[in-house]
């Protein structure tokens, strides 16, 4: 499929990335090229193939429900760009 600037802007919106006009143009061309290469995967018939999500077959990893120490609020907040008392502080969400 052909990648258009509108597709790029839509995907950027989903990814929460603001892009300038120049980035939209270069990403349109690059994604078009890379996805055209990826079309190669369609040469193979995979209808009967089971997908692999993980190389090592994994079952649910259960463990005992035992409490153990975790970070203090102070430590957990030590890298926060903004905090207030024991909370992360974010820009206003509800007007």
């Amino acid at each position: 499929m052909k990648i258009t600037p509108e597709t790029v802007s839509h995907v950027a919106d989903l990814a929460r990335l603001s892009l300038d006009q120049e980035e939209v143009e270069s990403l349109t061309a690059e994604m078009d090229l890379i996805l055209a290469y990826v079309e190669k995967l369609n040469e193979l018939d995979t209808d009967a193939i089971t997908p692999t999500a993980h190389a090592v077959p994994l079952e649910n990893a259960f463990r005992c429900d035992q409490p153990s120490p975790s970070f203090s609020a102070e430590k957990a907040l030590s890298n926060a760009p903004d905090s207030n008392e024991d909370c992360f502080r974010v820009p206003r969400v509800i007007e």
Binding site: R16, S18, A80, P81, D82, F88, V90, P91, R92, V93
Partner: peptide, 20 residues
């Protein structure tokens, strides 16, 4: 996303703009 760690660029345009 600029909330728990790392850099935050907030131009006052609200939460979604801050993420972007």
């Amino acid at each position: 996303d600029g909330i728990r760690f790392g850099q935050r660029i907030d131009d006052g345009g609200g939460l979604i703009e801050m993420y972007r």
